[in-house]
């Protein structure tokens, strides 16, 4: 993997569905090792951006570079091998497989790991068995970081909701990608689980040098761990900056809460608005 300081570089990214411009002229520069938030009201185009980044949609215009390599036109599985992996808004685990297998499937695809053809797998050569065990140990270790190692033999569907979300992150990490796209990682979590998740995200960033781009509605999480934030509204980036700047940005407040009538634009009203955002 190239050691470009920039994990992700997006320029002029536009997605047009017929007459609807879901995302227009989106731009983003994400330095390695940062946690970056992408927020916006429902239907603003956040998930569309993720789908373009991972090759699910082909953007109408624009360029995307992952670790300095262009990824437009590649298939989703090829893009993953460039070092970018995602989680899903509605959990998409391999439900009827064990927790360990969920992670193993991703680790098998890590391009930096040894791969074996059909014949070595058929005859279980020493090397194939060794690499398989090695992957198993590494997967257990990875699951340990997420506190899931004691449940590695259970079916993924049997995990509690918060653990399923964390397993998705573990699975994405197992691909060997250093850039993670988390699509609403805290959706449906209670405040306690969200706090645990924030700690985990911080941990994987510091311990593994992961770069993280996340979509989230939970403002406590976004404002708490993101170093910078982009705000999308109707497919257009209306603001970019640190959490502090975003919280005070009138355009952002307007996008979320609507324009306040002229006469009621008192200090009290703004404080309620920013309070909501916090």
């Amino acid at each position: 993997m190239s050691q470009s300081p920039c994990a992700l570089q997006i320029e002029g990214l536009t997605m047009q569905f017929g007459g609807l411009k879901a995302v227009s002229e989106f731009k983003l520069e994400l330095p390695a090792g940062k946690i970056y938030g992408l927020i916006g009201p429902n239907g603003a185009g956040k998930t569309t951006v993720f789908n373009m980044l991972t090759g699910v949609y082909q953007p109408t215009l624009g360029s995307i570079q992952v670790w300095g390599q262009p990824v437009i036109g590649l298939k989703p599985f090829e893009i993953t091998k460039k070092g970018i992996a995602r989680t899903f808004q509605n959990i998409r685990l391999f439900k009827q497989l064990s927790v360990l297998d969920n992670v193993m499937i991703s680790m098998d695809e890590d391009p930096s790991r040894p791969h074996h053809g059909l014949l070595p797998s058929l005859f279980r050569t020493r090397q194939a068995v060794y690499d398989e065990e090695r992957a198993e140990v590494d997967c257990s270790e990875l699951l340990g970081i997420f506190g899931l190692d004691h449940r590695k033999d259970d079916l993924a569907s049997s995990l509690p909701y918060g653990d399923q979300r964390r397993l998705e992150i573990a699975r994405a990490m197992a691909t060997g990608a250093k850039l993670l796209l988390l699509d609403e990682p805290a959706a449906g979590m209670n405040p306690h689980e969200t706090e645990k998740l924030m700690a985990t995200i911080e941990k994987i960033r510091t311990q593994f040098g992961m770069t993280i781009l996340l979509i989230e509605h939970d403002m406590k999480l976004v404002m708490g761990i993101c170093e910078r934030i982009s705000v999308l509204d109707y497919g257009v980036r209306i603001a970019e900056g640190t959490p502090k700047e975003i919280q005070g940005n009138p355009r952002v407040i307007e996008a979320y809460l609507g324009k306040a009538p002229e006469q009621s634009k008192t200090p009290a009203a703004t404080s309620i608005n920013t309070g909501d955002l916090k």
Partner: peptide
Amino acid sequence: RIVNSAHGRRFLSVREDEIAAEAMGVNT
């Protein structure tokens, strides 16, 4: 033997969730 190897896990991942498998780097 094949089902109980990395190749087999790929088969299973396609059965379980094709979109997720593709996103994890499996050439479905």
